[in-house]
């Protein structure tokens, strides 16, 4: 097996399983991408988790708890998928805590209001779904299978977010203003989730050839805008883009230029909450170390007793 025959296999839509031969670069790309995805799910629990204790109705509290719990589960499926490529969960978590691994920078923005719960579900999960559905057909078996599971659960996430906003937009003037404010803050960061423009994205071509990526950044971003703009109209909210306009001839929505400086800054770790998110993760890890040590000590002692 060599790179050429590997690419031919993958082009023929054959799946690659963990013990199959694969180019080293394919393995590295996947470990990086899958672990980044896993880290994002885990870090993503923080901005939303902060509203569980203040959820304004018991029904919303239950739904939010279930959603955030799903995210922990998603992180687990993804770490497990990455581990099949020869890395360990410990290694990946160490990289996250050391700050050498990346996670989706969307989670470096704060969630100052309840309406942010709606905006995150509608926009952030919406963008994630758009990225993730094609991954269900990714060439690497464990990742594709994890994504299928995740996608099934993710559609509930988006719907509950939209539902929160529908209720707010039909509520008091203050609730509607809260919803508009959240949209104003989350719109552009959600568009940035699709990554740089295609011409500024060097790795995309190889990822497409390896069937890890199915659609280009710009294609997915356009699809997202086309789908979401009418939803904003339904809510009676204004998307914060003066250039946003429906084009009758193309059937697409034209939209304004992204602030790539902000994008680069947040990706580089200077987002509003980077430090806070990392400190939170480190603290949970440090505070819990004694628990894992105790669990291992107890299991070892029990195994020794049974063997005796």
């Amino acid at each position: 097996m060599d790179e050429a025959s590997f690419e031919a296999r993958v082009e023929a839509e054959e799946k690659v399983e963990p013990t199959d031969w694969m180019p080293e670069a394919y393995r590295k790309t996947l470990v990086r991408q899958i672990s980044q995805h896993a880290h994002s799910e885990i870090i993503g629990m923080q901005p939303e988790g902060s509203w569980i204790t203040r959820a304004p109705s018991l029904r919303r509290k239950a739904i939010l708890l279930a959603k955030v719990q799903d995210e922990a589960g998603h992180g687990l499926y993804l770490y497990a998928a990455a581990e099949t490529l020869g890395t360990s969960r410990e290694e990946m978590v160490d990289q996250l805590l050391a700050g050498t691994a990346k996670y989706s920078s969307i989670f470096n923005y704060p969630t100052p209001t309840w309406a942010d719960m709606g905006a995150i579900g509608w926009l952030v999960d919406g963008a994630a779904i758009m990225n993730q559905v094609p991954l269900c057909r990714c060439s690497f078996g464990p990742y594709a299978r994890a994504m299928k599971r995740i996608c099934r659960e993710e559609s509930f996430h988006q719907r509950q977010g939209f539902d929160i906003l529908v209720t707010l937009c039909r509520g008091t003037a203050e609730q509607k203003a809260m919803a508009q404010d959240a949209l104003n803050r989350w719109w552009w960061p959600s568009l940035m989730m699709f990554g740089p423009n295609d011409d500024a994205s060097p790795h995309s071509a190889q990822s497409m050839r390896w069937r890890i990526k199915r659609f280009s950044n710009d294609e997915l971003r356009q699809r997202f805008v086309d789908v979401t703009a009418p939803q904003a109209q339904f809510l009676g909210l204004r998307i914060p883009d003066d250039d946003l306009e429906y084009d009758e001839t193309t059937g697409h929505w034209r939209f304004g230029e992204i602030d790539w400086d902000e994008f680069r800054n947040v990706v580089a770790g200077n987002g509003p909450c980077n430090a806070q998110r990392m400190a939170h993760r480190r603290r949970a890890f440090d505070d819990g170390a004694w628990v894992l040590e105790a669990a291992e000590a107890h299991a070892a002692r029990r195994a020794a007793r049974q063997a005796a």
């Binding site: 629990m45 955030v68 589960g73 819990g288």
Partner: peptide
């Protein structure tokens, strides 16, 4: 228990404590 979400010693415990919190919330409701 819901205060433990994203703070548990392991991700598995984030899920477990979340489950239990949800059950109790359902009973309360």
């Amino acid at each position: 228990l819901s205060e433990w979400v994203s703070n548990a010693p392991t991700m598995e415990e984030d899920v477990a404590l979340g489950n239990i919190a949800l059950d109790l919330l359902g009973q309360a409701r």
